[in-house]
Amino acid sequence: MIAYLAQRLLVAAATLLAASLVVFAMLEVIPGDPARLMLGMNATPDALEALRNEMGLNDPLPVRYLDWVAGMAALDFGRSYTYSVPVIDLIVERIVVSLPLALISLALSVVIAIPAGAFAAQRRGRAGDALSMGAAQLGVAIPNFWFALLLIYLFAVWLRLVPAGGFPGWSAGIWPALKALLLPAVALALPQAAILARVTRSALIETLGEDYVRTARAKGLPFGTVLWRHALRNALIPVLTIVGLQFSFLLAGTIIIENVFYLPGLGRLVFQAITQRDLIVVEGVVMLLVATVVAVNFLVDISYAVVDPRLRAR
C-alpha cells in the first residue's frame, strides 16, 4: 500500500511539473506585450522599456520559469502585471465566489438530476420517461446565457426578488451574498442537471438488467424499493464520474454566466487576464486547476485501491 501511494504521489508531482512547463511555454509564444497593453497607443518607447523592466519581462525565459516554479512551491504565485498585487490574493478573492457557486449549482444539479433520471428509468418507455427526458433534451439545448437572461427578466426585473447581477461580498452578510448567487447557480445547474439525468437513466437501466436485481425482485421486493435501494447505488459510479468532471468545469469554466451576472469569479479573472496579457495570473490559475484535477484523480486512485484489494497487491 505504501509503495502504491508513493508511486501515485510521484506521478502526481511529475504531472504538475510537466503541466507547468507546457503552460509556461504555451503562454510565452502568444503574441502581445503586456506593457504595451497597459500604456496604450501613445506610449513612448522609453516608458514601455521602463515598465517592462518593472514587470520583470526583460529577464531571460529560463530564469523567469525557474523563479516562477520555485515561487509556486512556496505558494507564491508571483505578482500580477496589471493589478500589481500578489496573484494568490487575486485567486483567493475570486475563489470565495467561484467555489460556493460551483458547490451550490452542483448540489442543485444532483438534487434535480438523480430523481429525474431514476423516475425516467422506472417508467422506461412510458409517458413519464418521455416527459422527463424531453425536458432534459431541452435543458441541454437551451444556451445557458439566454436562460440566464430569462431568469434575470423574470426574477430581478419583473418580480424584483433578487438583484440582476453583481456580488455584494460575504462581508455584506450570508443572505445577500447567497441571493446574488441563486440565479447564476440555477442557470448553471440546469444544463448540468440535464446531462446528469440522462446519465443516471442509462446507468440505472443497465443495472436493472443485472442478476441481483432479478434476485431481489424474485424474493418479492417491490420494484420501487429495488430501484431506489439496490440498483441506484450501483448505478452511481458513472454518475459520480460525471459529477467530478462537472465540478472542475463549474469552478472555472463559467465565464459566460459570470459575465451575464457580472460576478467576480475565477472564470472572469482568467478571461480578463488573457485579454490583458497578464500571463502570470493566467499561469497561476491554470496551475491551480491542474492541481485540483490532479488532487481529485489522486483521491480517486486511492479510493479504487481501498475498494479493490487487487490494486493494492500490485
Binding site: L149, R160, A164, G165, F261, Y262
Partner: peptide
C-alpha cells in the same frame, strides 16, 4: 462604479434599479 462586462446585462441592471 460597478463592473457590468456583458452588454446584454446592462439593460436589466438599469430596469431592476440595481
Amino acid at each position: 462604479f460597478r463592473i457590468v462586462p456583458d452588454a446584454a446585462s446592462q439593460v436589466p441592471a438599469l430596469l431592476s434599479g440595481d
